[in-house]
């Protein structure tokens, strides 16, 4: 975090950055952490499954506006879902990741979409569907068209990426950021605040919702 703030100070001091909360969702080992790692460190390595969730911040500048993305990288593993749900609330954007070489992960991504649909109004959240691992073209199980068709039917953004080959990763995040900015301008800049950590009302609600999964 220090690192990110170190290299991109909000240049326009007159203007506080927009702060957006972005969650990475998807089944395990589709490459959520790798996407985040590529974005933040511009590197790729084999990494172990995420424990719980990991939090990163990334500063961005887009069309003259400063943005701060607070990225929640969630574990794909079932056992951590309840903890991740906590951080899913209040999200401005969701990145639904699937592995193009794993049909099952595509179905899971669709299920994640349904969960989001239950929690959010369509205008509340920007959702992008990301088919990761285009480097595994040979063992592809989900075609580009299938992904696109699902995204279009639900009005989601869509992109195929490869965190390994650094193909369209930054583009995916920029697409999200651009859409967030566009909506923000329509709504008149509510997100422009220094740091909106936990929404206390949400916290109160979280108490009541008992998550009994493991």
């Amino acid at each position: 975090m220090a690192l990110v703030e170190g290299n991109t100070q909000p240049e326009s001091a007159s203007q506080q950055p927009y702060v957006f909360k972005v969650v990475l969702l998807g089944s395990s080992s589709v490459g959520k952490s790798s996407l985040a790692f590529r974005l933040i460190k511009n590197d790729f390595k084999d990494i172990l499954p995420t424990l719980g969730c990991a939090f990163f911040t990334q500063m961005m500048e887009l069309d003259g506006s400063a943005l701060k993305l607070e990225i929640w990288d969630t574990a794909g593993q079932e056992k951590y879902h309840s903890v991740c749900h906590l951080y899913f609330r209040g999200a401005n954007a969701a990145i639904l990741v699937y592995d193009i070489a794993d049909k099952d992960s595509f179905h899971r991504a669709q299920n994640w979409w349904k969960e989001l649909e239950n929690e959010f109004q369509p205008e509340e959240i920007v959702v992008i569907l990301v088919g990761n691992k285009t480097d595994l073209e040979d063992s592809r199980e989900v075609t580009l068209e299938e992904g696109k068709a699902f995204a279009e039917s639900k009005k989601l953004l869509f992109v195929e990426t490869s965190a390994k080959l650094n193909y369209q990763v930054t583009e995916a995040f920029i697409a999200v950021a651009r859409e967030l900015l566009r909506r923000e301008e329509q709504n008149g800049g509510q997100s422009r605040q220094r740091s909106p950590p936990v929404d206390l009302k949400e916290t109160a609600r979280a108490r009541k919702v008992k998550c009994c999964q493991d």
């Binding site: 990494i47 172990l48 719980g52």
Partner: peptide, 12 residues
Amino acid sequence: SSAFRAGEVWAP
């Protein structure tokens, strides 16, 4: 679990 040493992890 932290081969990936960036970011902050939150886990039960």
